[in-house]
Structure formats: structure tokens, C-alpha cells
Design a binder for these strands. Structure first.
Length: 445
RNA sequence: GUGGAUAUAGCUCAGUUGGUUAGAGUGCCAGGUUGUGGCCCUGGAGGUCGUCGGUUCGAACCCGAUUAUCCACCCCA
């Protein structure tokens, strides 16, 4: 069958059998954030293009070649957001949230759009969980963000990652560092790869990040930012490390971390996967951006935040075989043999559902055998069969699909009876799980 | 943007040196005596062989282009 069209390159459909896993990740993330005092904010998928040009930086790759930018029907230049921070900052600023008690702490789950070449864990539309903390200058704030991420990872049973931190200083101390880098790399200009030769003037810090073996070798002996940051920045960084130590949060200092977005200052950090198959993949990243709010027209407001790619977190969890929830299970399937029985099935289902039980009945008009097969495929816990006899006698058999055991129930009291049966069943299951005969249950699972 | 691999049923894949109506497993649907799932048996639906063009009497197979997917680089989440 020739389809008219397919999903757009770089996009991904999350199908019914798997959405519950993603939902679990999202819920966990927002809940952990809430426990740290971050409240959810929702901002539009598109913004005025200049917001990103100004905040992300118009020399960055993201702005230069990856944004989905278009003109709307009134000729405004609009851009689908490539990252979450700018929109959150704009919204908080615009609505005066930064004039209230600070810090202003927000969390969000958003879709981002970047025109990149799709790859494992990299999409043109990707989901991201992030938090932003506006108006927090002290090093404790930096450490708290990393603590939040660690708490989230722990809650998801996500392991096999490392935290790398660095300080890229403030704009003042960075001037001296950039000069030093230009001097160092300039002397070996001819050995550098082509892209890096171009970076020399524009942004020499990027050379540190180059994966080409030659550049990497040269970069290995390049001056470290940490030797050039000013006293204040150095003190801040030391304090951040002190907090991390005090909180038992392991990290390694990597003086070569360079963020691809211009707004970062001082502390930057990355969460990097150590799962063999995903080695080196960034699960998340963040840092401090003390100048961003001013850049957007607000008061000087030291701020910081981080974001994590949900698809990547999910990949990591799957690679680790970390526990993920099961999809909602059908507790009761009602098979109906004729139209009158179907009406009764609909009524009973409504009653049982109002007690919260996942209930379905046949809506495909199939034979009893087919309905039973379908119930089996749904992995339904119980089935109830309704036909003429049952309607006449007001009694029917409730079948346990796992054991085949049948219980006679009365249709008039059915919802109550069903609930009693299910509750009793849950009790015995719990008792067996936590009782002293656990062995038998586990063997039976 | 650069480099490499791949593209045949919903899914996983066969398809011999180009040769008539393109196959298997699985999944889906229906039956195996009238109202009970899982196992087994039988039957059925489903593919213009990614797309377009070329070579040839003849192309799933050879050639070219294009698109998509996967991987690496770049960049990032």
C-alpha cells in the first residue's frame, strides 16, 4: 500500500504501547522539580526570532543554521524554539515574575526544534525537561541544580552517568583567556583542521571541543580556563565544588567543556552517559547565565538552569533495563452475544469503571470465540460473558483468565461483587508478596 | 554540512548466474458443529520489491539519480 506521505525526517511517533513509559519519566521529572520548589511553566512553541538570536547568540551553530524560522502572514519573523531557556526567561520577565520575591524557579517539559542531521537519540523535534532559577547568585544554587538532577536520575533508577563541571568565567575574565587561546593555537595554526582555523578568530574556545585527533592533541596542552578566571569566579567555582562534596555528589572537573550557547557564564556542567552503547552522549546540560536577563532588557539577575533530553533519558533507561511501568491493564472484559447483552455490557462497564477499574467490552461485533481471543490478547484479568441465559437469570460467570477459574456472580450486584473480588485478590497478592511465603509467589510470576 | 551501510507483506527476513502468477515465519481475519481465550490444524486478506529514470526481448536483482533509515563526524538534549 503506497502511503500518501510519511512522518517528517527527524520526527518520531511514540506509539500507544510505549507512551506510558515516557509519561512516567515526565511525571517523575516534574514532581522532583516541585519538591525542589520549581513550578511548571508553559510557554509557546514559537517566539519572535530575535529572542533566540539575542539569548542563544547569533554566532552559534544553533542560530546560524539550525533554527526553523519563517515569516507568518503578517510578515513577523517567527522561530520554533530551539531550546527552553529563552522562552522561560522571556515569559518570567514579561509577566513581572522577576519583580516578585526571588528566586523565581520554574520547570518545564517542551518540544524543541533544530534542523540537525538525525541520529541515535537525536531528533529534529525533541522533548526536553528543564528547570530555570532566576535571581540566585550564590554557589549553593549551582550545586542544588546538580542535586536535583541526581535526585531525578535516582528516582528513575538511572545510573551509569557522570557529572562533568567547569567554569567558563565571566565576560571580563574570559577576555584574557581568549587572548591566551588565540596566542597558543595561532602558533600552531597550520596544524589545525579547517573548521578550527576558522574558529581561531571567531570563538577559539570551540577548538577545545574539536574531536579531530590532531586538534584534540594540540588542545590537550592548551591553557585551561581555570587558570584565567578572575578571583571572584574562581571563588565561586571553589564554593560550588565544596557544596557538591558536602552533598556527596560525585563530579569531575573538565576544563574543556564549552557550551554551544552564548549565554552561559561561570559554572557549566553536563550529564554524560557511560552506558557502552550510548557512551559520551549528553543526557543533559546546564549552567549559569548571569547576563541573560539583562540581555533581554531586565535588571541584572544572576540565574542558572539545566535541561535534559527526554528521548535520551528514555534510551538510557532502556539500555540499562531500568524498571519502567507497565501499561494500564484491562481488569475486566465483557463479552456480549447479542444486542441486548451488549446494552447490558455497556451499562455494567460504566458502573465498574466509575469505581476506577479498567473495563472494556466488544465493539467489533465478533463471535464469542473471537471476543475471548481478544480479551486474551488484551491480557485482561477477567472476562464476563453475557447472553440470553444470563440476562434472563441475572447471573453470569466471571472467568479468571490466568487460572481459568469461574465465579458465579449476580448481575444486579455485579459492580460491588466485582470490586469485592478484586480487592480480596489484591490483598492476597500483597500478603503473598510481603508475607513469609514469598518464594512461591515469585516462582509463579 | 561531510563520510559509510541499508531500503522486498504490519513486524523479522528469504529470493539461487537478470527469466512466466514474489516466498517463509510472525501478526491480523475467519473456520475446526450450534455460547468461552492460550496449544494444534485449515483457509483468507495484505506487497505497483522506497521513488523516478536507464540498460535489456525481459529487472526485486545491473547502472544512475532521488528520498528515507541507521552509524560515524560536526553540533547538541
Amino acid at each position: 500500500m503506497a502511503l500518501l506521505t510519511k512522518g517528517v525526517r527527524g520526527t518520531r511517533d511514540v506509539l500507544p504501547g510505549e507512551t506510558h513509559e515516557l509519561r512516567h519519566i515526565e511525571h517523575t521529572a516534574l514532581e522532583i522539580a516541585e519538591a525542589f520548589g520549581f513550578s511548571e511553566i508553559r510557554t509557546p512553541v514559537f517566539e519572535h526570532t530575535e529572542l533566540f538570536e539575542r539569548s542563544v547568540g547569533d554566532t552559534t551553530d544553533v542560530v546560524q543554521k539550525e533554527m526553523y524560522t519563517f515569516f507568518d502572514k503578517s510578515g513577523r519573523s517567527i522561530t520554533l524554539r530551539p531550546e527552553g531557556t529563552a522562552g522561560a526567561a522571556r515569559a518570567c520577565l514579561e509577566h513581572g515574575l522577576l519583580n516578585e520575591a526571588l528566586p523565581c524557579k520554574v520547570s518545564y517539559i517542551v518540544k524543541n526544534y533544530r534542523y540537525e542531521k538525525p541520529q541515535a537519540g537525536r531528533y529534529r523535534e525533541h522533548s526536553q525537561f528543564g528547570v530555570e532559577c532566576f535571581g540566585a547568585a550564590v554557589p549553593a544554587a549551582d550545586a542544588e541544580l546538580i542535586a536535583l538532577a541526581a535526585e531525578l536520575f535516582a528516582n528513575l533508577s538511572l545510573t551509569d552517568y557522570r557529572v562533568e563541571i567547569n567554569s567558563i568565567g565571566c565576560p571580563e575574565c574570559r577576555k584574557g583567556y581568549l587572548e591566551a587561546l588565540r596566542a597558543y593555537f595561532g602558533a600552531k595554526r597550520d596544524e589545525l583542521c579547517e573548521t578550527c582555523q576558522g574558529r581561531l578568530e571567531r570563538n577559539p574556545m570551540r577548538i577545545l571541543d574539536c574531536k579531530s585527533p590532531i586538534c584534540a592533541e594540540i588542545a590537550a596542552n592548551a591553557p585551561s580556563v581555570l587558570d584565567y578566571i578572575c578571583g571572584d569566579c574562581a571563588a565561586h567555582f571553589d564554593a560550588v565544588k565544596g557544596f557538591l562534596d558536602a552533598l556527596d555528589l560525585p563530579y569531575t572537573v573538565n576544563p574543556r567543556i564549552v557550551r554551544g550557547l552564548d549565554y552561559y557564564t561561570r559554572t557549566v556542567f553536563e550529564f554524560i552517559s557511560e552506558v557502552p552503547a550510548l557512551q559520551g552522549m549528553a543526557l543533559g546540560a546546564g549552567g549559569r547565565y548571569d547576563g541573560l536577563i539583562e540581555e533581554l532588557g531586565g535588571q541584572h539577575t544572576p540565574s542558572l538552569g539545566f535541561a535534559m533530553g527526554l528521548e535520551r533519558l528514555w534510551l538510557q533507561l532502556q539500555s540499562l533495563k531500568a524498571p519502567l511501568p507497565e501499561p494500564s491493564r484491562c481488569e475486566l472484559f465483557i463479552a456480549a452475544l447479542n444486542d441486548a447483552a451488549l446494552v447490558k455490557a455497556a451499562q455494567l462497564a460504566a458502573a465498574v469503571r466509575s469505581d476506577g477499574w479498567h473495563t472494556q467490552y466488544d465493539v467489533a461485533g465478533r463471535s464469542l470465540k473471537a471476543q475471548m481471543k481478544y480479551a486474551d490478547k488484551l491480557n485482561a484479568r477477567c472476562t464476563l460473558v453475557l447472553g440470553d441465559d444470563e440476562l434472563k437469570n441475572q447471573r453470569a460467570k466471571l472467568k479468571d483468565m490466568a487460572t481459568g477459574e469461574e465465579t458465579l456472580v449476580t448481575l444486579t450486584d455485579f459492580p460491588d461483587e466485582f470490586e469485592q473480588l478484586m480487592l480480596r485478590r489484591m490483598q492476597t497478592e500483597l500478603a503473598e508478596l510481603y508475607g513469609d511465603n514469598t518464594g512461591g509467589i515469585l516462582a509463579g510470576e
